[in-house]
Amino acid sequence: MITLMINGKAHQFDDDGSMPLLWALRDVLKYTGTKYGCGKGLCGACTVHLNSQPVRSCSLPVSAVGDGEITTIEGLSENGEHAVQQAWQQLNVPQCGYCQAGQMMSAAALLENNKKPSDDDIERAMSGNICRCGTYQRIKQAIHLAVELKE
């Protein structure tokens, strides 16, 4: 039995400890906001925070989480008030939206470590997140907007 701290709540997990956190979240604990895109750490759709750092949940076995605090898109804020979520809505960033939970989690983690990222900083931090719909231009704008909203 493993106890997982997700969005501030404790969850008991008694499946296979080698299961990637992504599937534990989605299939076992029903946090479906975190998405599958590749299962190999190549696309970023599954990005969550482990102790405030962005991680690819598809490549992180549950057993490796320990007593770390996990935050998913559902827990980023109560009701979408996080600056990143606000900026995403204001600029209508999403197209299909499927990659955007991962994008927002990466962006939120970036802003924790870098209060005012440059375009280059953004490109570096976000390069692991694919958006097949091609919303990159707006993602960049939205991160700059989130900086303003935070100020």
């Binding site: 906001g33 998405k35 009701n79 979408g80 979520q85 809505q89 999403p94």
Partner: peptide
């Protein structure tokens, strides 16, 4: 604004996989 913008921003939007 996008009809699904808030649901997407909060991870509530439901896709086929979900």
């Amino acid at each position: 604004a996008l009809v699904d913008g808030h649901d997407i921003a909060t991870g509530k939007a439901v896709y086929g996989y979900d």
